[in-house]
Protein backbone atom coordinates (compact mmCIF):
# COMPACT_ATOMS: atom_id res chain seq x y z
CA UNK A 1 0.00 0.00 0.00
CA UNK A 2 1.52 3.27 -1.10
CA UNK A 3 1.95 5.93 1.55
CA UNK A 4 0.63 9.42 1.17
CA UNK A 5 2.30 12.62 2.32
CA UNK A 6 0.15 14.74 4.60
CA UNK A 7 0.71 18.31 5.78
CA UNK A 8 -1.19 19.34 8.85
CA UNK A 9 -1.01 21.41 12.03
CA UNK A 10 -0.86 19.73 15.42
CA UNK A 11 -1.08 21.79 18.59
CA UNK A 12 -0.11 24.83 16.53
CA UNK A 13 2.99 23.24 15.05
CA UNK A 14 3.31 22.49 11.33
CA UNK A 15 3.70 18.74 10.89
CA UNK A 16 4.32 16.58 7.86
CA UNK A 17 4.03 12.83 7.82
CA UNK A 18 3.66 9.86 5.56
CA UNK A 19 0.93 7.32 6.23
CA UNK A 20 -0.86 4.56 4.43
CA UNK A 21 -4.35 5.42 3.17
CA UNK A 22 -6.05 3.07 5.63
CA UNK A 23 -4.16 4.25 8.69
CA UNK A 24 -6.25 5.87 11.43
CA UNK A 25 -5.14 9.27 12.68
CA UNK A 26 -4.68 7.67 16.11
CA UNK A 27 -1.99 5.33 14.74
CA UNK A 28 -0.30 8.24 12.98
CA UNK A 29 -0.21 10.27 16.19
CA UNK A 30 1.03 7.40 18.30
CA UNK A 31 3.30 5.43 16.00
CA UNK A 32 4.61 8.01 13.56
CA UNK A 33 4.62 11.25 15.54
CA UNK A 34 5.35 10.01 19.07
CA UNK A 35 2.22 11.65 20.44
CA UNK A 36 1.15 8.75 22.66
CA UNK A 37 -1.15 10.77 24.92
CA UNK A 38 -4.17 9.64 22.89
CA UNK A 39 -4.80 5.98 23.75
CA UNK A 40 -6.42 3.12 21.90
CA UNK A 41 -8.97 1.60 24.23
CA UNK A 42 -11.11 0.06 21.50
CA UNK A 43 -10.30 1.39 18.04
CA UNK A 44 -14.01 1.52 17.24
CA UNK A 45 -15.23 4.80 18.71
CA UNK A 46 -16.75 3.23 21.80
CA UNK A 47 -14.41 4.44 24.54
CA UNK A 48 -13.18 7.96 23.74
CA UNK A 49 -9.63 7.40 25.00
CA UNK A 50 -8.27 8.65 21.66
CA UNK A 51 -10.23 11.92 21.67
CA UNK A 52 -8.69 14.88 19.83
CA UNK A 53 -10.17 17.86 18.06
CA UNK A 54 -9.98 18.30 14.30
CA UNK A 55 -10.75 21.85 13.16
CA UNK A 56 -12.25 22.49 16.57
CA UNK A 57 -14.60 19.51 16.45
CA UNK A 58 -14.26 16.76 19.08
CA UNK A 59 -13.68 13.38 17.43
CA UNK A 60 -12.27 9.93 18.11
CA UNK A 61 -8.93 9.86 16.31
CA UNK A 62 -9.42 6.12 15.74
CA UNK A 63 -12.35 6.99 13.46
CA UNK A 64 -10.47 9.53 11.34
CA UNK A 65 -8.03 8.54 8.62
CA UNK A 66 -4.58 10.05 8.83
CA UNK A 67 -4.93 11.28 5.27
CA UNK A 68 -7.97 13.31 6.29
CA UNK A 69 -5.68 15.47 8.43
CA UNK A 70 -4.40 17.23 5.32
CA UNK A 71 -4.68 20.96 5.92
CA UNK A 72 -6.48 20.48 9.23
CA UNK A 73 -5.89 21.95 12.67
CA UNK A 74 -5.52 19.17 15.23
CA UNK A 75 -5.37 19.56 18.98
CA UNK A 76 -4.27 16.73 21.28
CA UNK A 77 -3.70 16.32 25.00
CA UNK A 78 -0.05 17.20 24.46
CA UNK A 79 -1.11 20.74 23.53
CA UNK A 80 -3.36 21.36 26.50
CA UNK A 81 -0.88 22.72 29.03
CA UNK A 82 0.95 25.93 28.17
CA UNK A 83 4.57 25.18 29.01
CA UNK A 84 4.67 24.49 32.73
CA UNK A 85 1.18 25.85 33.30
CA UNK A 86 -1.50 23.21 33.41
CA UNK A 87 -4.95 23.92 32.02
CA UNK A 88 -7.43 24.38 34.89
CA UNK A 89 -9.06 21.09 33.93
CA UNK A 90 -5.74 19.28 34.24
CA UNK A 91 -5.09 20.83 37.63
CA UNK A 92 -8.56 20.08 38.96
CA UNK A 93 -8.37 16.50 37.72
CA UNK A 94 -5.27 15.97 39.85
CA UNK A 95 -6.62 17.84 42.87
CA UNK A 96 -10.05 16.20 42.83
CA UNK A 97 -8.70 12.68 42.27
CA UNK A 98 -10.57 12.47 38.98
CA UNK A 99 -8.14 9.86 37.73
CA UNK A 100 -7.11 6.51 39.13
CA UNK A 101 -5.25 4.57 36.45
CA UNK A 102 -5.24 7.64 34.21
CA UNK A 103 -5.48 5.92 30.85
CA UNK A 104 -8.85 7.45 29.97
CA UNK A 105 -7.78 10.83 31.36
CA UNK A 106 -6.24 12.41 28.22
CA UNK A 107 -9.38 11.68 26.23
CA UNK A 108 -11.66 12.93 28.97
CA UNK A 109 -9.66 16.13 29.37
CA UNK A 110 -9.78 16.85 25.63
CA UNK A 111 -13.52 16.14 25.60
CA UNK A 112 -14.18 18.24 28.71
CA UNK A 113 -12.22 21.17 27.30
CA UNK A 114 -14.29 20.97 24.14
CA UNK A 115 -17.48 21.04 26.24
CA UNK A 116 -16.45 24.07 28.27
CA UNK A 117 -15.55 25.95 25.11
CA UNK A 118 -19.14 25.47 23.93
CA UNK A 119 -20.85 25.71 27.28
CA UNK A 120 -19.06 27.47 30.12
CA UNK A 121 -21.74 26.54 32.68
CA UNK A 122 -22.94 23.02 32.00
CA UNK A 123 -25.20 21.20 34.42
CA UNK A 124 -23.94 17.92 35.88
CA UNK A 125 -26.32 16.12 33.53
CA UNK A 126 -24.91 17.95 30.53
CA UNK A 127 -21.38 17.00 31.57
CA UNK A 128 -22.41 13.38 32.02
CA UNK A 129 -24.07 13.18 28.61
CA UNK A 130 -21.26 15.02 26.84
CA UNK A 131 -18.76 12.58 28.34
CA UNK A 132 -20.91 9.46 27.80
CA UNK A 133 -18.54 8.37 25.05
CA UNK A 134 -15.54 8.53 27.35
CA UNK A 135 -15.44 5.31 29.30
CA UNK A 136 -13.77 5.30 32.69
CA UNK A 137 -13.67 2.02 34.55
CA UNK A 138 -11.93 3.19 37.72
CA UNK A 139 -13.74 6.18 39.17
CA UNK A 140 -17.44 5.62 38.67
CA UNK A 141 -17.30 9.12 37.10
CA UNK A 142 -18.20 11.03 40.28
CA UNK A 143 -14.91 12.77 40.77
CA UNK A 144 -14.58 13.44 37.05
CA UNK A 145 -17.85 15.38 37.06
CA UNK A 146 -16.73 17.26 40.18
CA UNK A 147 -13.38 18.15 38.63
CA UNK A 148 -14.98 19.40 35.41
CA UNK A 149 -17.39 21.54 37.39
CA UNK A 150 -14.75 23.01 39.67
CA UNK A 151 -12.50 23.77 36.69
CA UNK A 152 -15.46 25.35 34.92
CA UNK A 153 -16.19 27.51 37.96
CA UNK A 154 -12.56 28.63 38.06
CA UNK A 155 -12.59 29.37 34.33
CA UNK A 156 -15.71 31.49 34.83
CA UNK A 157 -13.77 33.45 37.42
CA UNK A 158 -15.94 32.27 40.30
CA UNK A 159 -13.14 31.03 42.52
Amino acid sequence: MKSIQVSTTINGDPVEFLCTPDEPLLDVLRNRLGLTGAKEGCGTGDCGACSVTVNGRLVCSCLVLGVEAEGAQIETIEGMAQGETLHPLQRHFIEKAALQCGVCTPGILVAAKSLLEKNASPTDEEVRYWLAGNLCRCTGYDKIIEAVQSAAAEMRGEV
Binding site: T36, K39, A97, G102, T105, P106
Partner: peptide
Protein backbone atom coordinates in the same frame (compact mmCIF):
# COMPACT_ATOMS: atom_id res chain seq x y z
CA UNK B 1 -4.57 14.19 54.26
CA UNK B 2 -5.21 14.34 50.52
CA UNK B 3 -2.14 15.58 48.65
CA UNK B 4 -1.74 15.35 44.88
CA UNK B 5 -0.37 12.11 43.52
CA UNK B 6 3.21 12.17 42.27
CA UNK B 7 2.27 10.80 38.85
CA UNK B 8 -0.59 13.25 38.40
CA UNK B 9 1.04 15.72 36.02
CA UNK B 10 2.36 12.96 33.78
CA UNK B 11 -1.12 11.47 33.59
CA UNK B 12 -2.99 14.68 32.77
CA UNK B 13 -0.50 15.76 30.11
CA UNK B 14 -0.28 12.49 28.19
CA UNK B 15 3.32 11.89 29.20
CA UNK B 16 2.78 8.78 31.32
CA UNK B 17 3.95 5.66 29.51
CA UNK B 18 1.46 2.81 29.49
CA UNK B 19 2.04 -0.63 28.04
CA UNK B 20 1.44 0.26 24.41
CA UNK B 21 3.53 3.43 24.67
Amino acid sequence: TTPNRPDGVDKVTGKAQYGAD
